[in-house]
Design a protein around this nucleic acid. Structure first.
Lengths: 319, 319
DNA sequence: GGTGCGCGTGAGTATTTGCCCATACGGCGA
DNA sequence: TCGCCGTATGGGCAAATACTCACGCGCACC
């Protein structure tokens, strides 16, 4: 066996080693360069590559007093099973950055269970951030199941694939919803629902032990619209019907009651029903635009767990 | 509730917030300063304070090819239940920095078990590093027990307290060994061993489900000597008797067989007997000086799990 | 009340890092 | 074979960061 420790096969190996020396060892990029026999620029590129590729995870080991206070208040007011409030990053930054590591910790807590669990998953940017922030763990004892598909009306797949990425990281059996989120007609939907594959996934999702979902707002920047599931006209009509938010595509009003919309008959996904302490539904969402949607979902108990950030938590409680 | 988000009570809160903005948010220290209403220097100090205090944890999300190879080789050669090899940090750096995060992950894996476990712990710098690198988790279902005390012959407590720190982080019931590691006479030892408290701790330690220990070398820089448990003369005598290493104070030879020393009768701690797959003993150690001690302990099966670094792993396998 | 000590602060400065650009390398089609 | 294009590389430079030092404040002790 060669004793030269610095020769690795792949570029990712090099990047990981450079990042290790940088972040864990505390070497400067110059030192890394000479240690690994590279130019400083290359060392710098490797470190930044590792950071960009998510090879290194940074976590804060301290609950801020203010965040703890908000957690306690939310827990009490809405009877939450789980609640995490992370510090905000200022208005100009994506709040997903802030909540993703905490959401990943919640997911890891579930994955660490030795008994077999069924874990249901929504879609969206926040969930995708959670998966990206997750440390790979072998957890083949669990089953992962989608609540809804990943394909828009026009056939395009969403960028924010969640279940496959997660399955890859934890090596668990997974059951994506193999149909578009929304179909054109009620008949089409009926046909799809009759498919064995769809029925199996639905059945599994409905008995999920724990569910992780994003929460969508129904304002002008509604993810349902920006992701191409609704036209602006449809959105406005639904807004007039009192829409406050949406979980896995199912739209509810300001009290968190699901709305009886014609759209519903064309939705293929599984509707998340009222969460229980034994089968919690964890909402992962943050941002000023989502405050109303979150408060409604918490009020009626569509979700009974929450990972959010400080300003969002304050906003929810202020209402 | 105040909506000014940047005023925190304690300095640690401030440090944690600054570090969060810096590491997770990616703000510059200038931006943090204006966000929190501080001078840039103060922001810098807060960030470095948080880093020094271990408020932030960095973990690498990638197994280097070379390390995986070493892990596989060690596993195969010594029949290990668990094995982690982390990249080395170069000869001038403390290898504990390198192995502590990986050891913490192993510990977290045990703590995440939902069933109640008895976790036995040795002492030493490596274990202390592991505890420092551990993320706080509530794990009150487990019991933590010391294999040996923390007090030297002269009554001074070791700097590397492990069990209390760990208990604090995980909020688990804990049973420190309430006596000095080594006593002056055999009679004293007999008296102490008769104490109910000691017998209870010994009993618990002997039925531990998993054990984490450091591994001490018996060369001139033996931790047993530098920590004040042995005089140089005693060390040399024991070296002549064939000492290769030590686990929890119990000294063994180059084949990992415990030596029959007069010293043994004055040791108060629990001797780690042969590990089994059901009740693994994980060794946490790295450094060129420890290679011989580790190889011996692995050979006889005193430990059947290992967390070490790359050069140490290569050295063990080279013998 | 003076004096010395320790701690925290801000200014200045050296080091380190991130980024841009010119250049070299290698594949590929004309 | 030549020229083109995409990619990777190292030099240089501006920004960001870490360190040092002198100062000021509070506090305890004299």
């Amino acid at each position: 066996m060669s004793l030269t420790p610095t020769i690795d096969a792949t570029i990712d190996d090099q990047a990981a080693r450079a990042a290790w020396l940088y972040y864990v060892g505390g070497l400067t990029q110059d030192q890394i360069a000479s240690e690994m026999g590279l130019s400083r620029q290359r060392a710098q590129r490797l470190v930044s590559r590792a950071a960009a590729a998510g090879l290194i995870h940074v976590r804060l080991n301290h609950h801020l007093a203010r965040c703890i206070g908000l957690e306690a208040a939310l827990r009490e007011r809405f009877g939450l099973v789980r609640c995490r409030v992370m510090p905000g990053l200022g208005p100009s930054r994506d709040p997903v950055r802030s909540i993703a590591p905490a959401a990943a910790e919640e997911m890891e807590r579930v994955l660490a269970e030795s008994g077999s669990r069924v874990i249901a998953l929504g879609t969206g940017r926040a969930l995708r951030g959670m998966v990206d922030a997750l440390s790979p763990v072998e957890a083949p004892q669990h089953r992962l199941v989608s609540l809804l598909g990943n394909i828009a009306l026009d056939g395009s797949a969403s960028y924010f694939e969640v279940i496959m990425r997660l399955a890859e990281k934890v090596r668990a059996p997974h059951y994506p919803m193999p149909v578009p989120v929304l179909v054109d007609t009620v008949e089409e939907n009926r046909t799809l629902q009759a498919l064995g594959a769809v029925r199996k996934v639905r059945g599994l999702a409905q008995k999920a032990d724990v569910t992780f979902v994003g929460v969508g707002q129904m304002s002008e920047d509604a993810p349902l619209m920006t992701d191409g599931f609704l036209t602006p006209d449809e959105l406005h009509e639904i807004q007039r019907a009192g829409a406050a938010g949406e979980v896995a595509g199912w739209i509810y009003d300001g009290q968190g009651r699901y709305l009886d919309l014609s759209l519903n008959a064309r939705l293929t996904g599984v509707r998340v029903e009222i969460a229980t302490p034994e089968r919690p539904v964890i909402g992962i969402a943050a941002g000023a635009a989502k405050i109303v949607a979150l408060r409604a979902a918490l009020t009626s108990g569509i979700i009974n767990g929450l990972v959010t950030d400080e300003p969002t938590a304050a906003g929810i409680l202020a209402g």
